[in-house]
Design a protein around this nucleic acid. Structure first.
Lengths: 222, 222
DNA sequence: CGCTCTAGTCTTGTATACAAGATCAGACCT
DNA sequence: AGGTCTGATCTTGTATACAAGACTAGAGCG
């Protein structure tokens, strides 16, 4: 049986992965055909995605996928870095024995994937690692916000984890972050995790800049 | 003519202001009757609000208003403080002449309302002040996130601005924040604005605690 | 030759009809 | 009497029909 949320997730997946180009109209009938349903569930999914900022709904003129340009992407990475840093700070103050166990377990899993040189598998465990820190912050709201943000940045993160030997560096950073958290050094944990995420943003910016994929970063309108 | 977004906003307003009690089912037919429309637009509005975290949609069992308990509210204030602080930090680094002008103008408006002792008017200008700082951060994404968060915290903020002589204190804090921003002191601006917002959260927590309005903070389920 | 106005078509937005799971009440059984 | 099963009713979820604004193409005009 198909859950309502699955349609939304499938659409989100497609949009976030850039299946639809910038400014392409998302035709409700076509989507309905493609997903084998009527327009109603499609519309409801689109409404949700528009509330989440993934599509823009122009009255009477259809929905278009929102494809963040390089500047917007940097802004998103900046905010993500700030919030991940905040999570680390709170985690350093509040972690429990259960959090400790969980973090060590996930960290070990990261090590295995990193040593195996499996970037894709590492990428997955990396997500779990960050999620575990968010959980250790014991702020449900922060955790939710971070999860939503991570989903949107997912494809871009993945993109640049593959470059260079980022996996090795990433793991080393995880190590330092955990040390700071377990030492209850909130400021240091915040700084380290923030930088850890920002590096991804910077690297992404480099990547984009080098590809010059971006003719119209400044053409954003109010 | 009634825009689609107006229905959503009206519903959001009602929910955020706690018109519906905790766990009360939002009956689609009743809402449709009340707003003089069919169920379809109501459903679409509810979908958007569920994506924004304001209502929870339980499959086949209807939507209920999500009323944050005290702990969740504190978490939201914490995150808001962090992001407002971030905005101040960025604003201190990036403000332009136009931002400067705008900030001074809004600050002057705040002063007038504060001196007139008009808490409600001050409350409104206060919003504009914070919005102006977010604008001066030159991060569109951060600005949007802050706007969304502010909307959700609005009723609680308003609640505690009325207490004590918070208006006078608030204005003095604004003054210091602007000084730090104009001096390009990013760290100080961040610290001041963060505390400025956190005070509101703390005061709110005091309020709630004193009213003991909250029997079931721990009953939140996974 | 290009612009504008207009009719036609297409797409979105809303209402309604129908299908299917959830709730509730009453009867039945233990 | 209490609990449980079952059918009636109600609500949500989906499909379809219809209304109304937006795009398009083509004719007419400058």
């Amino acid at each position: 049986m198909v859950q309502r949320s699955q349609l939304r997730d499938a659409l989100e997946e497609e949009i976030v992965n850039g299946v639809f180009g910038k400014g392409v109209r998302l035709d409700e009938q076509e989507l309905a055909r493609r997903y084998g349903t009527s327009r109603t569930p499609i519309r409801e999914a689109l409404m949700q995605l528009s509330a989440a900022g993934l599509v823009e709904m122009r009255p009477r003129r259809g929905a278009v996928a929102v494809v963040p340009d390089a500047q917007r992407l940097m802004e998103m990475f900046e905010v993500a870095a700030e919030m991940e840093g905040m999570a680390a700070r709170l985690a350093a103050r509040r972690w429990t024995e259960a959090d400790n166990k969980q973090l060590l377990a996930v960290h070990a899993a990261c090590r295995r994937k990193a040593e195996a040189g499996d970037a894709d598998a590492y990428y997955y465990e990396n997500e779990v690692f960050h999620e575990a820190i968010a959980a250790a912050s014991h702020s449900g709201f922060l955790q939710e916000q971070l999860t939503a943000l991570r989903r949107r940045l997912k494809p871009y993160r993945r993109l640049q984890l593959r470059t260079h030997n980022r996996v090795g560096a990433s793991f080393a950073e995880h190590d330092a972050i955990l040390a700071a958290i377990f030492a209850h050094d909130a400021e240091e944990a915040e700084r380290l995790l923030r930088d850890h995420v920002l590096v991804q943003g910077d690297r992404f910016a480099d990547l984009v800049a080098s590809l010059a994929e971006l003719p119209a970063a400044a053409v954003r309108k109010a």
